[in-house]
């Protein structure tokens, strides 16, 4: 299934989202039927502060081509300062990611509010394009046989 032809290759992106803003923003995109790229999968947590380096690293290790961490705008976190902690965690994660030799463009942090359905779609489209440009992740490539098998199993 997963051919190496650059055009037919589809990235696999993990999106971590907080329940109150960015996950809700993705729902809002749904309610307004704003179409966007379908190559990402959401993992919901209560607050972006919950997103620890291990989550992101695990995603890359398993073969994610990109990881998006998202939460409420600064000052709007449901738990007051959770997203400010998320920034610190994100910076730690980023330095490890760079150390591992993964391009830093594969990891991104975005604030999206529950009303910003259109922005959610925009961010997804733009990030998907960016990952497409970069091509498959170095970790993902090594695992390509397993990936190829997935298409059949699915």
């Amino acid at each position: 299934m997963a051919t190496k032809d650059k055009n037919s290759w589809d990235p696999e992106i993990v999106v971590f989202a907080c329940n109150w803003c960015s996950y809700a923003g993705a729902d809002t995109a749904g309610v307004s039927r704003i179409q966007h790229q379908p190559h990402f999968r959401m993992i919901r947590v209560m607050c972006s502060g919950r997103i620890q380096p291990a989550f992101v690293l695990r995603a890359f290790e398993r073969g994610a081509d990109g990881v998006l961490v998202s939460g409420c705008h600064i000052g709007e976190c449901h738990y007051i300062f959770g997203n400010e902690r998320a920034i610190e965690q994100f910076e730690k994660t980023m330095s490890i990611v760079k150390m591992l030799g993964i391009e830093e463009q594969r990891l991104r942090l975005e604030w999206i509010s529950s009303a910003e359905g259109a922005r959610f779609a925009e961010v997804i489209n733009e990030f998907t394009e960016q990952i497409r440009e970069l091509g498959p992740s170095p970790f993902g490539r090594k695992r390509s046989p397993a990936k190829a098998g997935k298409g059949v199993a699915g």
Partner: peptide, 16 residues
């Protein structure tokens, strides 16, 4: 969530 975050937003690419 296969409605709000899937069928509603990817109806232009049903296979994906």
């Amino acid at each position: 969530n296969i409605r709000d975050q899937c069928s509603w937003v990817h109806s232009d690419q049903p296979e994906l």
